[in-house]
Simulated assay, not measured.
Amino acid sequence: MNDFLYRGVLQPYQVRVSYGVTTGVVRDAVLAHATDPVASHLLARALTAGVLASPLLGEDEWFTMRWNYEGDLQSIVLDVDEHARIRGFIAPKLLMEHVESEESLYGGGGKVSVTKSTSVKVLNSGTTEAALLDVVEDLAHFFSYSDQIETAMVAMVGFNPDPNDPVSLCQGLMIQALPDCDLELFDALRRGLNSAEVRRLLSVPPEVDNHFEHVFKAMLQSIPEAVFDLRLSVAGEPQFRCRCSLERICDVVAVLPDAELEEMIESDKFLSVDCRFCSRQYRLTPDQLRTILQTKRSISA
């Protein structure tokens, strides 16, 4: 089953929704970064939350999201665009041997920062306290507090014992209150979103085309005489895709001082540069470094 993302509105209640399956995205990220089970679980939840938020973006826009905590989990960083193409990393990527408890994982607190950008400028940015000590709930809190849009999210992750196919399922659901939404009703939907039945449905693979209807109807059970009127459209096919390239890596290397570049050229050794977002390794030859230095000097001349 391919990953997918739907967006829509629960019409009677004026609630924006996004629902997605991100199994492939998470699998590709876990394999790329070789994360251990604890780090994989956290990265999976953050990536799924990022995908669920992508329908909030317009054309040529993307979010850069950063979670920073005070415990053994130091940070998670990701970028996601309007097509649900996402990349990200977690630090450290090996957590099992360090974490003794949930308290030691997150420490005493942290912060969540989100920046919305285009290819030419930063549109807006904000930071909130990561008071809930959960990557998904802390991002929902960010949108509720910083953007003043009541938001709730849930993401469920399942793993296989196979190191070559480590992710069995990952899917999630986000709801947001539109301007005419009754906030008391939204709180009821939030409780429904976190119900045992919704979590159970998100923990099993969609076996029928209308699986999402069962998920939303389970959420609506928290509302007496609920009316099910859900209008969905395809919002994209989530992909773990990095924007790194040899050209961009060369631009980064060009920032190094001339003397440092000259020393690397004279050593006649390869320069290895790893992309943090996808763990791809670039190896620059002395000739490539020489070209970078010559280009840099010609521009500054």
Rank of each mutant, 00 (worst) to 15 (best):
Q14E: 15
Q288S: 10
I76V: 15
R297N: 11
R297Y: 02
G71I: 04
M174V: 11
K296W: 05
L73H: 05
Q14F: 12
A301S: 13
C170R: 00
P286L: 07
C275R: 08
C244T: 13
L189R: 02
L57E: 05
P179L: 05
K93Y: 09
L123R: 07
V273E: 06
I86Q: 00
V167M: 05
T115L: 13
V122C: 10
E61H: 06
A39W: 01
T115Q: 14
P224W: 12
V154G: 00
L42T: 10
L94V: 15
N164G: 15
F89R: 03
R199V: 03
E184T: 02
V252S: 11
E213S: 10
P206H: 06
G71T: 08
A259N: 12
Q239K: 14
F142V: 00
A155V: 15
G71R: 04
R190F: 06
Q239H: 11
V234Y: 13
S75K: 13
R283A: 10
R190V: 09
D138K: 01
A301H: 10
V167A: 05
P166H: 05
Y69E: 01
L73M: 11
E150T: 05
L173S: 04
L94I: 15
D36I: 07
A84G: 08
K111G: 03
S40C: 11
A235H: 02
E197F: 06
E184I: 00
S117G: 07
Y6W: 11
L256T: 01
Q294W: 03
K296L: 04
L10M: 15
L47A: 03
A32P: 05
V204R: 08
L57F: 11
V120R: 12
C244F: 08
A188S: 10
P224S: 09
A49C: 07
T48R: 00
S146V: 03
R200A: 13
Q288A: 12
R191M: 10
N194K: 14
V38Q: 06
E213R: 07
V273C: 09
N2E: 15
D229K: 06
E82N: 15
D229Q: 12
R87N: 08
D72L: 03
C250V: 09
T151Q: 09
S222F: 09
E260I: 03
N210H: 10
D134M: 02
L73K: 04
S300E: 15
L232D: 08
G158H: 07
K121W: 05
K296E: 06
A49K: 04
P286H: 09
T151K: 09
S203R: 06
L201I: 06
S267M: 11
E247G: 03
E197R: 13
V136Q: 01
K296Y: 07
W67G: 00
F277G: 07
E262S: 11
V252E: 12
A53S: 14
E97C: 03
I265S: 10
V135L: 01
S125I: 00
G158Y: 01
D72W: 01
L31K: 12
L52F: 07
A152E: 13
F277H: 12
L178D: 08
R16V: 00
Q294S: 13
A259S: 14
